[in-house]
């Protein structure tokens, strides 16, 4: 073990935790490249990369789950996501300013090239950095302590000791296994049977499928929804009806959603809400 690399890693971790990270891990770009296709490898984006730092934070406020408007979780989620983004920028700046290595933050959930074809898979990096494993709930990475978190990457030229993936899958939780044995459902599969399907066997995921296309209208309808609504409006021949459509409440929400990520129309969280992993963080006095 190279103690110099460990020291470098410790400095970055200490800074990241101090800046608000709940979990921090390091993935090796070479390991990521073994699974990722050409054009989606870390070095395709940042040729100087020697390490990938994965920062996770954005634990949902417990109160958000208790609001009468269930979409309020999405409002808080938008803010939380922004916090993690800022955190990744701070970590990158720390690495450049204090340690003297190149660093760049990276998030792959933008509509790069106009389609949902992420440049680098954050899920893959988080898994390889030992921060969690994929779940039945749309393959969301579940951290064993916190459950659902938001993740951002920091790609750096700093050589850091990579972490190892978790030995034991976080999903299914023991209570989900018990539920499966009784009713052949898990909380997430029951919450959203359209987007999610799968089966457990011997306490493990036997197979799972996530219909992301159907998840769009539920979790991601802000941008695509705007395009869909615009298409309907353009096809409407009656100018009066067109006016009602454009000025009406639904289209106003679409417009607001693309202008402001905190709009209530995006996000769903139904599968996350019922997940028992990290549930203790959702319970307060």
């Amino acid at each position: 073990m190279d103690t110099r690399l460990d020291e470098l890693k410790r400095k970055i971790e200490d800074y990241a935790f101090g800046a608000g990270a709940l979990v921090v891990g390091v993935a090796s770009p070479q390991e990521v490249a073994k699974y990722a296709p050409e054009g989606h490898r870390p070095s395709d984006f940042f040729p100087k990369v020697k390490s990938i730092i994965v920062v996770g934070a954005g634990k949902m406020l417990a109160g958000a789950w208790k609001c009468t408007d269930p979409r309020w979780v999405g409002v808080i989620g938008g803010r939380k996501l922004k916090e993690v983004k800022e955190l990744s920028f701070k970590v990158a700046e720390f690495i450049e300013d204090k340690l003297g290595y190149y660093a760049v933050p990276y998030a792959s959930y933008s509509l790069a090239n106009g389609v949902w074809d992420p440049g680098i898979s954050i899920k893959l990096c988080a898994e390889l950095a030992g921060l969690g494993t994929r779940s039945l709930a749309g393959g969301i990475i579940l951290n064993p302590k916190y459950g659902f978190l938001y993740y951002y990457l920091v790609l750096t030229s700093a050589p850091l000791q990579p972490d190892s993936p978790l030995n034991k899958p976080v999903c299914p939780h023991p209570t989900c296994v018990k539920m499966w044995e009784k009713v052949q459902k898990t909380p997430c599969l029951r919450a959203c049977p359209e987007c999610l399907s799968g089966e457990l066997e011997n306490g493990r995921i036997k197979w799972m499928q996530y219909n992301r296309q159907l998840c769009y209208p539920r979790a991601n309808w802000s941008r695509i929804g705007f395009q869909k609504a615009l298409f309907e409006i353009i096809n409407e021949n009656d100018p009066e009806k067109r006016k009602m459509m454009i000025f009406g409440s639904t289209f106003t929400r679409y417009v607001s959603a693309i202008a402001n990520s905190l709009e209530i129309s995006a996000q769903c969280f139904r599968c996350v809400e019922v997940c028992p992993v990290g549930k203790n963080h959702r319970v307060k006095k």
């Binding site: 269930p70 159907l214 769903c268």
Partner: peptide, 19 residues
């Protein structure tokens, strides 16, 4: 990716509004 009936968006809104 967007070629889903528009009604699905309305249905999703109702689904999310349910507590």
């Amino acid at each position: 990716e967007k070629d889903i009936p528009f009604e699905e968006w309305e249905r999703a809104d109702r689904f999310k509004a349910r507590k």
